[in-house]
Design a protein around this nucleic acid. Structure first.
Lengths: 338, 338
DNA sequence: TTGAAAGCGATACCAG
DNA sequence: CTGGTATCGCTTTCAA
């Protein structure tokens, strides 16, 4: 726990020179910079966080608010938390966790105590109460997800509509005439933001391409695997030859398993695409084409926007949609008759 | 963002009185305290975090280090993160996240920069590299989990041995003569700490009670549900009448499902106990007896120990095992022939 | 290119 | 029970 004056003494310079040598906010001669750096290494010096926060203009901490909703998909959520942390560290920022009830009250608390420079909002609900708080507090706030009312907010998200269209186009291009979407449990279409966007874009694009299309929720509150199996049977029986799955991994594996039970091969008999999934599609027993969530890209952008707002002292509201990627793993082909 | 001098002026007292009125570290007359509190409310005053860290002796932040291992069970992990956050907030502490590679280097960083008052270590591996770091840094550090070498460390954990024994005793008391344990995927017995403890304690207790006992891993790297089904069939065929399941929820539901397929009822034909699970056993289709993980208790204790160390300026090494609880949901009964 | 010194906003010691 | 003030360790302005 060496202090800056010790470093200054060791390097034979003033403390302000040490400060500038480290921050680079003022030109320092190469010679002195090297002496300072050597002293820093020798003493294992690290600026005191509290002093820095007080004297400087920033804390180098972002708050991450995450209400662990009961219907939150834990692995996906973890991927975003991790991605946020990685993105923040790249810019020398730390992440302070605000969970549960504190996700809202905590935003006010850290804002007025000056503990953080900005707030990153995860797991955004359509009617998220953090929207109102974001408008009240005087702190850069970036939503990773899109609430219904995003007036004046900065939001980052995957372009779900484009992702759904991408899947439909693949199916259409391969020659399928009747496709389906197995989506989230029904509750997701009321309480979450993106499932409805995927569903409607999927339908719209299918119309545009002249395809017959069907939609099925994978359950009511949570995925119902037995129900998924019967859905798969029904869809296939009704002539569907391509299915997009927008649901957790276990639903996808159940779909594959049920097809296998009926001797149906992917992609020979049925084509499959995983939509907006967070898992690595290559870890599945059978590789599946996918249009994955882009956790790292989303969080990188969110941090970048927050950082820009911190530096400029104000943020420009706007919706930032990230283009989807298509991962081709060979699970889409022409339909049996085509 | 009112400051303490504004509060002092508004309340007609000195800033030191404001500070003491809020911290309670010095007696303050009821009258002045109320005037101060009123001023605080009016101005929505919150002490500046940086100033507090610098002037005071503590930061009111704990670091939470969590290496997201590939084999980490996300829902369980989330439960512990959440529990830690809740426990910390109860003591006016915030949680700073250290993930991945930063989980180790970050410990050094936050220690020497004085960003946090202590470190909470989650997801502990047998040969955890954070053990060495904990010994080097001069910060209270509490492990939630037990590494192989815990010399000089403070560790908190569920008493897994007692939990396993509790399950065996229930089976024995109900009259079962041949029991089994379906455990973690095999990799868990090398890279994690507690699965081996459960396995060996289960076997030891079964010996003590004179029961035949079998052990099966639920997979190799990850749970293999097809394998679980065949394990269940084999066990039942070999005369096992009671099974403890120490594995994620999907394994448990698979076990139940496979039993159902063969017309076997719980507990009439087979008795079941979920061991060290993080899920709420009452959300299962069929309620199951369980000896759950105690995330909140563990994290409460961990925070308490860290806090004590902060206040006393030193910590007393020791292993703190939390006693398991048995949740009776009626899934254990006498064996068919008994 | 460098140094001296004025804050930053609390805490807590020393007086009264 | 209350007030004045030194102090925490750094950033940054002002001067040289």
């Amino acid at each position: 726990m060496a202090k800056i004056d010790e470093v200054a003494k060791a390097a034979g310079v003033s403390i302000s020179t040490v400060s500038y040598a480290l921050s680079g906010k003022r030109p320092v001669s190469v010679a002195t910079r090297q002496r300072v750096e050597a002293a820093v290494r020798d003493l294992d010096y690290r600026p005191n966080a509290g002093a820095r926060m007080l004297a400087g203009r920033r804390t180098n901490i972002f708050a991450l608010t995450e209400p662990f909703r009961p219907d939150t998909h834990a692995p996906t959520h973890m991927a975003f938390v991790l991605a946020t942390s990685i993105a923040a560290r790249r810019s020398e920022y730390d992440i302070l966790l605000l969970t549960e009830e504190e996700a809202s009250a905590g935003m006010r608390r850290v804002a007025s105590s000056g503990l953080v420079d900005g707030v990153l909002v995860l797991d955004v609900a359509p009617d998220d109460e953090r929207v109102g708080i974001a408008r009240q507090i005087d702190l850069p706030t970036v939503f990773i997800g899109v609430p219904d009312d995003r007036e004046g907010l900065v939001c980052v998200d995957l372009d779900f509509e484009a992702a759904a269209s991408l899947a439909v186009d693949r199916f259409a291009d391969a020659g399928h005439g009747s496709i389906a979407l197995i989506g989230f449990p029904a509750v997701g279409y009321e309480k979450s933001n993106f499932p409805p966007r995927v569903r409607s874009a999927y339908a719209r694009r299918a119309e545009e391409r002249g395809l017959a299309h069907a939609f099925r929720a994978s359950g009511v509150e949570t995925p119902d695997l037995a129900r998924v199996r019967s859905i798969v049977r029904d869809l296939v029986a009704s002539g569907v030859t391509a299915i997009a799955v927008h649901s957790p991994a276990e639903v996808l594996t159940t779909v594959m398993d049920e097809l296998g039970r009926h001797g149906l091969r992917v992609p020979a008999n049925v084509s499959i695409i995983a939509l907006a999934n967070s898992l690595d599609p290559d870890t599945l027993p059978t590789p599946i084409d996918s249009v994955p969530l882009v956790a790292q890209e989303s969080c990188d952008l969110a941090v970048e926007l927050a950082l820009a707002a911190v530096e400029e002292g104000a943020q420009q509201p706007g919706l930032h949609l990230l283009p989807p990627h298509y991962l081709d793993r060979g699970s889409v082909a022409a339909p049996p008759g085509g």
